[in-house]
């Protein structure tokens, strides 16, 4: 049983606007390289603002902070879980990921997700933009049966 001390009482899972994937009810994304909150802003959209305080910046890289591509992928994954068509999905594969522009502190990422059923798996295509720049497109496969 996980106790969430900092979740406002009126905000429940699945409600747009104020859901933090790190502290969602499943606890599935409780361990994450990204400290900030991912917010659901629509049925198929999440946003994330890259704070200069993100812990990864200390080492990626000293004196030249770049938000790691794998952290953009992490945001896409958390966005996928926030908009998932059913509960309890677990990441099975990164079918593809393409990184097209760097992301820096202060950028506001908008991730559009598109879910499709593919036999035993669910597939989520996530397109991440920072302002008018396309920064990444990832295709993630999920299977039912637990989170990780």
């Amino acid at each position: 049983m996980t106790v969430h001390l900092d979740r406002p009482a009126e905000v429940g899972p699945g409600q747009p606007g104020a859901v933090d994937a790190v502290r969602d009810d499943t606890g599935a994304r409780a361990v994450s390289p990204v400290a900030g909150a991912v917010h659901r802003t629509g049925p198929a959209e999440v946003t994330f603002t890259v704070s200069a305080d993100e812990p990864v910046f200390a080492g990626h890289y000293p004196n030249f902070p770049i938000f790691p591509g794998m952290c953009v992928l992490e945001i896409a994954h958390r966005g996928a879980l926030l908009t998932a068509p059913e509960p309890g999905l677990a990441l099975a594969a990164m079918k593809s990921a393409r990184f097209t522009a760097p992301v820096f502190a202060g950028d506001r990422l908008t991730v559009a997700v598109d879910w499709k059923r593919d036999r035993e798996r669910w597939t989520c295509v996530a397109r991440a933009r920072a302002g008018d720049r396309d920064v990444a497109v990832v295709r993630l496969d999920y299977r039912a049966g637990g989170d990780r």
Binding site: T2, G27, A30, V31, S32, P33, M70, L73, M94, D147
Partner: peptide
């Protein structure tokens, strides 16, 4: 990534993030 004590309250919850594995 494990700084939040609530994060490691169960073995499943303690799984290392796939993004960091890659």
């Amino acid at each position: 990534w494990y700084a939040d004590a609530a994060a490691v309250s169960s073995s499943d919850g303690a799984a290392y993030p796939p993004a960091l594995l890659v």
